[in-house]
Design a protein around this nucleic acid. Structure first.
Length: 482
RNA sequence: GCCUCCUUCGUCUAGUGGUUAGGACAGUGGAUUUUCAUUCCACCAACACGGGUUCGAUCCCCGUAGGAGGUACCA
């Protein structure tokens, strides 16, 4: 089978992590099966269209490492890949359906539809179209058509849907799902009065014309899947294989939304997540490999991804766990890769400085953006201190002063020795004075970095150099003695 | 309301007609360590409930409950 899979978002807002997961699974499935992955823009709702969203879509997917063989920006043999540029096509196919008796024009005004709905609500009847325009005789129809034309209103095209029988959707994940046709929405609109198709028509026409083999989409589409099957059948087309993916929820069990935290890919990126970390986490939300392996690169996922390891149940998005995967991903980076990612963040660092300092902080970073703060001391000597910070446990301020004074001679030429040698010197001097290495280092750390937490001190001493560290220790001594 | 889907530790999940029900995150306690972090070790913690089928059910069937999604000229 020729595998062709697509990701078809609506450009209504910034790319959502849920969408990214759908795109990721679609992409991985295509890759694992040696097929094609393509992008299609479903911009059929003019009122919700957002121009920024399109650029954000490409940016977010590229950032994640997902590439597409065909799409709005790169073209391809089945284009155009933007639905607003395919309007004639949808009209033509809608007409075809009307001529075959599978669809009809509806002239009902929004006002009539509103009144109908209110009436149904009042009487606690099931909501839905009353098929008014399906029952029109020829003369009635031409009158209504003429009136609509006079009002400058375009009719909509509705699917002529049967209420008898059942429709079965074969889902690769969920199995056979049957639904009574009487439970389907009554004669849904296929072509809107603005000339745009609804999702239903656009999905069926495009996935047929673009020869989509598998449709991976969120489970919120499951209820309308039988309708889509009916549409394919009305056209006499082959139904693609469906895979309805489980939803991603927030901590409270509701569909993941902004109030749960970051939801846009862009936000995760700005918050200092790596693409590798986010992708690794997302891959494991609703999919698993086996009972133990959990770390995967995109390339590895492309090899091992398969539909039969998908989960059927919805998954709660765990921000703590993404953090964990992100930390791991950062630690997996080479220094050169980390440098490339952090350069925009650490603009005041030279290449040589980055090469020196990054190994010191790499395993301490939970987020990329943490680097700026973690290395703040490099170009900024502490200007204020907290006295108590200098004092190691069980010692007093006098001891802290004594330690700093004892450290001064040891700092001379620090950069000419390796870290082990410097450590041995401090350890030995500490023993003479009756202090543990930890006691020796704390006042120094505070003097040089400004606080009780810092990257490893011997690396810092070596990189900062004798002159700078001596200056900082002297300043700290002056502060303590003042 | 109606329709559809789902149900293993708090969370993500593995798994089997007979297992001490496995891993990961989080949490707790330790070890290592110049702080922090990393790393390592240990602990805590689950088969929603009720009926069947069966020698035996977490696993198969049926109900119940709970959760979610859908019910638009939005996707």
């Amino acid at each position: 089978m020729n595998v062709r899979v697509r990701y078809a978002p609506s450009p209504t807002g910034f790319q959502h992590v849920g969408g990214l997961r759908t795109a990721l699974f679609s992409y991985l499935f295509a890759k694992a099966r040696g097929g094609k992955f393509y992008l299609r823009l479903e911009d059929t709702d003019q009122s919700r269209y957002n121009a920024e969203a399109e650029a954000d879509l490409y940016e977010s997917l590229r950032w994640a490492g997902i590439t597409w063989d065909e799409g709005p920006d790169v073209g391809g043999p089945y284009g155009p890949y933007v639905q607003s540029k395919r309007l004639e096509l949808y009209k033509q196919y809608a007409r075809q359906l009307v001529e075959a008796g599978h669809a009809y024009e509806c002239y009902c005004t929004p006002a009539r539809l509103d009144a109908l709905r209110q009436e149904q609500e009042k009487n606690k009847q099931p909501l839905g179209y009353d098929r008014h325009c399906a029952r029109l005789g020829d003369s009635e129809r031409s009158v209504l058509k003429a009136r609509a034309a006079y009002d400058d209103r375009e009719p909509v095209v509705r699917f002529h849907q049967t209420s008898e029988g059942d429709t079965t959707v074969e889902d690769e994940l969920l199995g056979s799902i049957s639904k009574a046709n009487s439970d389907l929405p009554v004669d849904p609109v296929l072509l809107k009065s603005d000339g745009f198709p609804t999702y239903h028509l656009a999905h069926v026409v495009d996935d047929h014309l673009m020869e989509t083999s598998h449709v991976l989409r969120a489970q919120e589409w499951l209820p309308s899947a039988p309708l889509h099957v009916q549409l394919f059948q009305a056209f006499g087309w082959q139904v693609p294989r469906y895979v309805h993916l489980p939803l991603i929820l927030g901590q409270d069990g509701q569909k993941l939304s902004k109030r749960h935290g970051s939801t846009s890919v862009r936000q995760f990126r700005e918050d200092g997540y790596t693409a590798e970390g986010l992708v690794n986490y997302l891959a494991l939300l609703g999919w698993s490999y086996d009972d133990s392996r959990e770390f995967f690169s995109l390339k590895e996922l492309e090899q091992v991804f398969s539909l039969n390891k998908l989960s059927k149940s919805p998954a709660v998005f765990d921000y703590k766990k993404v953090e964990h995967f992100n930390g791991h991903a950062i630690r997996q980076l080479t220094i050169q890769e980390l440098k490339a990612l952090l350069k925009p963040e650490l603009t005041n660092f030279s290449d040589a400085e980055l090469d020196g300092y990054l190994p010191l902080v790499q395993e301490r970073l939970k987020f990329l953006k943490d680097a700026r703060e973690a290395l703040g001391f490099v170009h900024r000597a502490p200007s204020t201190w907290v006295r108590e910070d200098f004092v190691p446990k069980k010692l007093d301020e006098a001891a802290a002063i004594a330690i700093l004074e004892a450290a001064l001679p040891l700092l001379v030429g620090v950069e000419t020795r390796d870290d082990e040698t410097n450590e041995a010197h401090f350890r030995a001097r500490g023993e003479e004075l009756g202090y543990k290495l930890g006691d020796m280092m704390q006042p120094l750390r505070v003097a040089i970095c400004g606080g009780k937490v810092s990257p490893p001190m011997f690396g810092i001493l070596r990189l900062l150099g004798t002159a700078e560290v001596t200056k900082r220790v002297r300043a700290a001594l002056a502060f303590l003695k003042s």
